[in-house]
Design a protein around this nucleic acid. Sequence first.
DNA 1: TTGAATTAAACAAATGTTTAATAAAAAATT
DNA 2: AATTTTTTATTAAACATTTGTTTAATTCAA
Lengths: 201, 201
Amino acid sequence: MKKDYSETEIKIKTAAKSLFLEKGYSATTTRDISKESEINLALLNYYFTSKKKLFEIIMLETFYDFISKMVEVYNDEKSSLEEKLELTSSKYIDMIIAEPHLPTFVVNELKNNPSSILKILKGQIMESKLVDQYNDGVKKGIYKKIDPIHFVTNILSLIVFPFISSPIIIKMKKFNKTEFNEMMKERKKLIPEWILKMIKK
Amino acid sequence: MKKDYSETEIKIKTAAKSLFLEKGYSATTTRDISKESEINLALLNYYFTSKKKLFEIIMLETFYDFISKMVEVYNDEKSSLEEKLELTSSKYIDMIIAEPHLPTFVVNELKNNPSSILKILKGQIMESKLVDQYNDGVKKGIYKKIDPIHFVTNILSLIVFPFISSPIIIKMKKFNKTEFNEMMKERKKLIPEWILKMIKK
DNA sequence: TTGAATTAAACAAATGTTTAATAAAAAATT
DNA sequence: AATTTTTTATTAAACATTTGTTTAATTCAA
């Protein structure tokens, strides 16, 4: 029962996503979207009823992508905890370099749209293979016994926050954007090492 | 040469700050501000010329507070690196618990207002006593040799990011706000320990 | 009495949405 | 195959609110 999207619908969604990501919901006007997507203003409401509805669709899809990419790795059956850390770090950093506005957007618009969109999360992370492997390590006495929420939070913090605060980092180090991205690529290797040090006894 | 603020001015600024922090610049209207501060709509322009000007004043002050609190500790002459980590962690977490919208606001509105506001940062962090102490440790061979920007970034990441992503954490752990704050208070102790483990050879 | 502070009302521009007319495409009929 | 009918897509214009700002009159304080 997959819906068939028309070319116009796709054009609208693409433009809208790009604008919402860059400027947020309130600062993006329907006329911005119509201009960017080169469609007539009325078609936005014709296809998506309202700006709000269009936003919710985009928000949902974007957040879903954002989370699935993580959950995929976290639930892989074959890889070790160390390998999962390396993969997550690497994949996520690449993903955000390609779409730098993503984290701020997700984080920002999340506090206004809480419950409905966050359903996607349900148990997918805290009951993942990665957390199991962490708990096993605790049981075996190789990892310190701390609530795994800290473990999960720290991974995300070290990966995502630097992007969110990139204007600050760029200013502090007199970086340009390329140099900043280089720094983030460096972190692909460093973050897994740091996380391991943090959890080990 | 300190300017003398009238009661009305203060009322406007207080209400505006609260609203800007909660909803951001675009989603806050001048009528919201006039209602919240219980002043006549025209007084906003009478005292602050425009919504934009008012915002810039508030943005500047807020960001300045946000940074000074950090710089203060980072440049303390007497304390050790370990003590600085503990103090930063503790003070910052308390600060954000008291004003939970602060980080999202700063981070969010920063990418639109780059250079002018970020001047505040100039060298204050990367040339701080804390970074000196870190570099000393590297020279002495007790810390790994990595660009100190990672060190500084990691501290801020582990402290601030959990607040920014609090809706996600709250959902994952089925927390309420109090439980989330408890988790953050736990981190006051944990973060300095983690950071030390990360930098040690 | 003079200047500052406050107010209600008005203004122009922007914004989300709808309408009514037209064009294009698809389906039905001859 | 050709023509008519019906449905869908697109358009320009209009509409009703909202929003930031200004004006001109009034109140208050020095």
